[in-house]
């Protein structure tokens, strides 16, 4: 095995481990930390795929901000007890059906439609990405920004409503 393969395997296994912790850990803190491990390993794999910008943004946004917010919520709600007393039978069934449909969809994509392998090439640099986003894909990019802005405004409005009651 080459060094690259060793590093890839390491991060792939770490990412899988993180994902399994998210699913099966009983304490919410560990679920959040499993998610963190998964995000960081995924970032490492992005960097190995010659997309350093994507990898680093993955760390800043997902690992740096989103998991912190999860932990923040866990702290405020004081979710320290295991979730084992929750009735999981119905939710488990729904989750299982959703998982199967997601996996079959993925299988269709991979083996039937045969998506071309995403090639960013050696130019996965921030400059190149910026050019693509702000020149070739300007309108979808701006639409996504507006969508996020709308989501923020809605969150603020909903939050305010709760305050008045």
């Amino acid at each position: 095995m080459t060094l690259t393969a060793v590093i890839f395997t390491l991060f792939a296994l770490l990412g899988l481990w993180g994902a399994l912790v998210v699913l099966f850990a009983k304490r919410p803190v560990y679920n959040a930390l499993g998610l963190l491990l998964n995000f960081v390993s995924l970032a490492a794999i992005y960097i190995m795929l010659n997309a350093p910008f994507l990898g680093v943004i993955q760390i800043i946004v997902y690992s740096g901000a989103i998991v912190v917010f999860f932990l923040f919520v866990i702290m405020i709600l004081n979710l320290r007890d295991p979730l084992s007393d929750m009735d999981l039978s119905f939710k488990g069934l729904v989750a299982f059906v959703l998982m199967i449909s997601l996996l079959s969809l993925l299988g269709v994509y991979l083996y039937v439609i045969k998506l071309p392998a995403w090639k960013l090439g050696p130019e996965g640099s921030p400059g190149k990405l910026g050019e693509l986003l702000l020149r070739d894909y300007l309108i979808p990019f701006e639409l996504a920004s507006i969508l996020l802005l709308v989501a923020i405004v809605i969150a603020v409005v909903l939050g305010k409503k709760g305050e008045e009651q």
């Binding site: 970032a43 910008f53 680093v56 943004i57 760390i59 800043i60 690992s63 740096g64 901000a65 912190v68 921030p126």
Partner: peptide, 8 residues
């Protein structure tokens, strides 16, 4: 960016 990530 890497530095900001580490700091986060």
């Amino acid at each position: 960016l890497l530095l900001l990530g580490i700091s986060a």
